[in-house]
């Protein structure tokens, strides 16, 4: 795969808009960052911070119709989006998409969207609030198998020199920039020493992360079954079942279905994000509920993120260390809070 130097990121953004709808992280008036479709005449600055929400809903929609029934037959209603590029995705979210790609490998709705997407990753060169991607092998540098193109900001580079390293991560990424020119010239190939520079920058970034040893201690305790049902029940008192964590978690994928009558009298079936932390998530028609106790539901959620069984199936834990659950949980049982309690008290 080739490596190039770029002096101006806007030239890459513009080039990609010839083939794709561009989406990028922007900040709103309240200072919250979120993904937004960008118009071609106004490219915002690339933000070095993760968005409040992950990119999972670009592929696994919060709500979508999956079929229509006309009174006689059921027909599939697959989405057909225009090609789009997610520009500047952090490594944690890319690793999560890679995880979801495996989980939804045979799901036609997920794949119908996913195949139209080009992922442009962005290396993180400083830790983010609550993030612990190095601890769970999900960052800060973009893993080459998770993005089509990777952008790396060159630090301490004189202003007259190129400011970015552009790395091809896939054949699709290579194709997307194959005909890109700057002032009529092909892209400038980067010398290999820029990759060494990248490694050093990422290594320095890793060292700036705070001590996350509580995460590893707690993972071991969870998998050795050293966390009691009493402990889970105790912490579960703080779970109000708001689904904030499951909505923001980039690897959560539970969904429910419901049937809806359309204005033309056809019936559609919709699937929508669900949460394993809702009390009724496993409740059966007979009222039998295997996870009626909140402790069981909270335990399930964290096992789904850190169980060795999941790691065996997906080649990694279900948690990518983005820290969004810590940020959002009103009950203060996000990842750091709960893993510290497991490490210290369980």
């Amino acid at each position: 795969m080739n490596i190039y130097l770029l002096d101006d990121i806007k030239k890459l953004q513009l080039h990609l808009t010839y083939q794709y709808q561009l989406h990028q992280i922007v900040k709103n008036n309240q200072g919250q960052s979120h993904w937004q479709q960008i118009s071609t005449d106004q490219f915002p600055t690339l933000l070095h911070e993760k968005a409040q929400t992950s990119i999972k809903d670009f592929f696994f929609a919060q709500q979508e119709n999956i079929l229509v029934f006309n009174g006689e037959y059921f027909q599939e209603t697959l989405p057909s989006p225009n090609p789009f590029v997610l520009f500047g995705v952090q490594s944690c979210d890319l690793v999560a998409v890679n995880y979801q790609d495996k989980f939804f490998k045979n799901d036609p709705y997920y794949q119908a969207r996913r195949k139209h997407c080009l992922l442009v990753g962005l290396d993180c060169i400083s830790p983010c609030e609550h993030g612990f991607c190095p601890t769970v092998n999900a960052g800060p540098g973009v893993r080459s198998h998770t993005a089509d193109l990777i952008l790396h900001p060159l630090v301490n580079q004189p202003l007259e020199k190129p400011q970015w390293l552009l790395i091809e991560g896939s054949e699709k990424g290579a194709m997307a920039i194959k005909h890109m020119t700057i002032k009529g010239q092909p892209l400038e190939t980067a010398h290999w020493h820029y990759l060494t520079q990248r490694d050093l920058t990422l290594k320095a970034c890793k060292q700036k992360f705070s001590d996350d040893s509580h995460i590893n201690i707690a993972i071991e305790k969870i998998n050795n079954n050293n966390v009691s049902a009493v402990f889970w029940q105790k912490v579960a008192i703080q779970c109000i079942g708001c689904s904030g964590c499951t909505s923001l978690c980039p690897t959560c994928s539970c969904y429910g279905t419901r049937s809806i009558k359309l204005p033309n009298d056809n019936i559609s079936q919709e699937r929508f994000w669900d949460s394993c932390l809702y009390e009724g998530f496993q409740k059966e028609a007979s009222f039998h509920n295997p996870t009626a106790e909140a402790g069981k539901r909270v335990e399930r959620f964290w096992r789904h993120k850190f169980s060795d069984g999941i790691a065996t199936e997906f080649d990694r834990y279900g948690c990518v260390g983005c820290g969004r659950c810590e940020q959002t949980c009103p009950g203060v049982i996000g990842v750091h809070s709960i893993m510290k309690r497991i490490a210290n008290d369980a």
């Binding site: 989980f103 539970c254 279905t257 669900d274 496993q282 409740k283 169980s307």
Partner: peptide, 19 residues
């Protein structure tokens, strides 16, 4: 075993039992 199910193909998550 009886469990609540929405998809029946191992995606929706409702019928989980351990992993």
């Amino acid at each position: 075993l009886e469990r609540r199910m929405h998809c029946a193909v191992g995606l929706c998550g409702h019928c989980y039992l351990g992993d």
